[in-house]
Design a protein around this nucleic acid. Structure first.
Lengths: 352, 352
DNA sequence: ACGTTTTGCGGAAACGCTTCCAACGTTAAA
DNA sequence: TTTAACGTTGGAAGCGTTTCCGCAAAACGT
């Protein structure tokens, strides 16, 4: 280990008291300029590095923000995390990541985090937490931010899931499709249920009868069903419907859409000629695959989440803010929009 | 904030000294069973939570592992990080992520990290670090692990890049191609230069003359050239060669391959009928796109990296270990192997 | 019955820092 | 000239643990 240099060493070397050294290090104004210089110089010469944990213990705060995330390995979270990471280091905080499988694990973590000084703020991602935990959090007075979920008592950043699903579905219907289905994720996920609502509403609004047989979810439970296999399985189920099968699908995430496309390809369906598809998220691969989808400003959500959290940390009485982003429809080729508008299929399709 | 409960509270409540409380909390055997029970009970009743920073200060260690990563938003790193995350939490450590743009930023961070007690171990990902930093690290005695790069003085986990490139290129040649080119990433990246070596060696071994015009790299510098646009640009450059253009390509990452495929499609080339391609990495999408590629065991590398680091932390004098994974060739459709072996192109191709 | 270990335990010291308080020398105000 | 106020400074106290030292009581040996 690098030999420790403490403020005592500096104090001795500079012929002052430790209090003065500390004041210099913390830019406390009440130090004579001359003394300040001398101390700064000694500190640099000894290449002093403060002991973070000692500081945190003494200051009673952690300079740490932690993010509790269900599965930080999904494309969606990765993208949001990029924004988070960028801002966190800009503000000079540490980022501690906690990957959890379910909300109850989060609860477990909350208990640990609540000890004063462990973290200065927490961000929860896509977690529907039990009321008990929520109120624990609330009375703890710890700054908390919610991303991709909402609760009245905390700041939140979210996406208008229902609205997005509504737009996606409507787009399909406007393209002339009457038999449109949905591939959803698991209903334990709030975004999934919200997207289902949007889907239903769009159908009803367009005078198309809704039926439960119109929405399917694969059996793969990883990432709450937001995964490729789930999409593959659900689409296979649809294909098994035979002539009853819808010919247009709103799919609740791009990654599921890719699974669905694989299933479709395997069974000889062409996209968009035979089947139209619109996804959700607009992950990088969606552009590559020419997938029509609803874009969520993931990076930006991460950035905003930290900005909001930091301002709440410095001003706890700030009024609670809820920000909802509206996803925007990105029309590419998988929905067949170009085909119908231009009268012929695009020659550039990468979808089969 | 949750009202603080300290070991003093427990001691008072249980009618013992703080030393005993601490011993119970740390499972130190020299406490009478009866006393131990009483204390545990009180601790639970008061829902005591140790103050992490105080512990770390007293114990002189941090229970934290940090990972320094160039761009933790690329598919390759995401996958590796999954493995890292899994193991880290299994061992009960905290994971602190540092995203950096270049090695010099890492240096900056190293200085901070070196202060005793800040972190117990560091993992560096894909970073070619200046010797000065390396020796700083070395003499600091901090446990260090290298992933995707190698240095004699530290444990490392890497992939046989040259070997992989060799295998990929050879596969192309064995399929009958004589004009084979390479799309590389930027030469600042060590994996990129190693893969180039493998490519050259394969050519030479097969009696095919190498020429610099056979390898190109796009202008996009993000992720050191391991990005989609770079692949697109490089392939466009190749296409501009006209009749001189190779008809088979080894591409140094899957993501670049997708860009290249886009370029090819745009210009009307068919894959694999006109152009054969093999990529590198085997990211999830490669399977979807039926891309022939060299698989790196990314998740496993992450797992191993942490296991190795943790064992070094507990046993600093352990002999230095270098593990090299050999990438394996995953034959799918983009190389045309099925076409040539089965005499006809696959009907399921998703590559155009 | 008397040393001698062993076992269990209390609490001071240490970890490295921040912060508060007292004290000093100066300078301004009266 | 006296007093009050100010600008600086030193260092003790405190943050919540762990750990070491030493002591008492209990267990052991003979």
């Amino acid at each position: 280990m690098a030999k420790k240099v403490t403020i005592y060493d500096i104090a001795r070397e500079a012929g002052v008291g430790i209090g003065t050294v500390s004041r210099v290090l913390n830019n406390n104004p009440s130090v004579a300029p001359e003394t300040r210089n001398r101390i700064s110089e000694v500190a640099k010469r000894l290449s002093y590095q403060p002991h973070t944990y000692a500081q945190r213990l003494a200051r009673q705060q952690s300079e740490t923000i932690s993010a509790v995330i269900p599965f930080f390995t999904s494309y969606f979270f990765m993208e949001v995390l990029r924004g988070v990471q960028e801002k966190v280091s800009e503000f000079g905080y540490d980022l501690v990541l906690y990957g959890v499988e379910h909300a109850d694990q989060a609860e477990n973590y909350v208990a640990k985090a609540l000890q004063r000084g462990k973290v200065d703020g927490i961000l929860f991602f896509s977690m529907k937490m039990p009321d008990r935990v929520l109120s624990m959090l609330k009375e703890s007075n710890l700054p908390v931010g919610l991303v991709d979920s909402v609760s009245p008592s905390f700041d939140s950043i979210s996406v208008a899931n229902a609205e997005g699903a509504y737009a996606a579905t409507s787009h399909l219907v406007e393209l002339g499709h009457r038999k449109v289905g949905m591939l959803n994720a698991r209903s334990v996920s709030t975004p999934a249920t919200e997207r289902l609502q949007g889907f239903r509403r769009a159908l009803e609004q367009q005078g198309i009868p809704y039926s439960d047989s119109l929405v399917k979810c694969g059996k793969s439970t990883r990432h709450d069903g937001f995964n490729r296999d789930s999409g593959y399985e659900a689409m296979m189920d649809f294909i098994a419907m035979g002539s009853e099968m819808p010919n247009a699908f709103f799919i609740s995430s791009d990654i599921q859409a890719f699974g669905a496309i694989a299933a479709l390809n395997e069974k000889g369906f062409r996209i968009p000629e035979d089947i139209a598809i619109v996804g959700f998220d607009d992950i990088e691969l969606a552009r590559l695959m020419r997938l029509t989808t609803m874009r969520q400003p993931m990076f930006q959500m991460g950035v905003l989440a930290i900005e909001r959290l930091v301002s709440r940390m410095s001003n706890p009485d700030m009024e609670i803010l809820h920000t909802t982003f509206s996803p925007t429809l990105i029309v590419r080729e998988s929905c067949g929009a170009f085909m119908s508008s231009e009268g012929m299929p695009s020659t550039k399709s990468r979808l089969r």
